[in-house]
């Protein structure tokens, strides 16, 4: 059984990179750049996750079938979030039938109508 054994040095380097990125994401939090804060935090998180998946979980040297499965998992995760979010964002874009409302000139409290 032949497996690609990654040199230990790679693991130490990834560990240091992950620690640096953790420090960066904490530091970036104390700088207010409005809506960009979330984007920066998510970009750093995705970079860290990619490092863990590719090096620690060794997907880089896994079989093409494993890579396909990982990619499919990510695809369905983004589909899940994208479709759910598109529903919430687009609500109210198109007028939908509203419950029946009383017109102003039809006043049931008006004794003259009885």
């Amino acid at each position: 059984m032949k497996h690609h054994v990654v040199p230990r040095k790679h693991y130490y380097l990834v560990f240091l990179a992950l620690l640096c990125l953790t420090g960066t994401t904490v530091a970036a939090n104390f700088v207010d750049v409005g809506g960009l804060n979330l984007l920066i935090a998510l970009c750093i998180a995705f970079t860290k996750a990619s490092l863990v998946v590719l090096i620690f979980m060794n997907v880089r040297f896994s079989s093409p079938l494993t890579k396909l499965f990982v990619a499919a998992g990510l695809f369905w995760l983004f589909t899940l979030i994208l479709l759910t979010f598109s529903d919430y964002v687009s609500r109210g874009w198109i007028p939908t039938p509203q419950p029946w409302q009383e017109s102003p000139n039809r006043n049931v409290d008006n004794p003259a109508l009885h």
Binding site: T22, T25, V26, N29, F30, V31, D32, N37, A41, L42, I44, A45, K48, A49, V52, V53, F56, M57
Partner: peptide
Amino acid sequence: HFVDIVWIFLFPLLYLIGP
């Protein structure tokens, strides 16, 4: 490693929401 990745996303989303 997967459990580690979940935390990598939980940390910025729950702890680093606002400046």
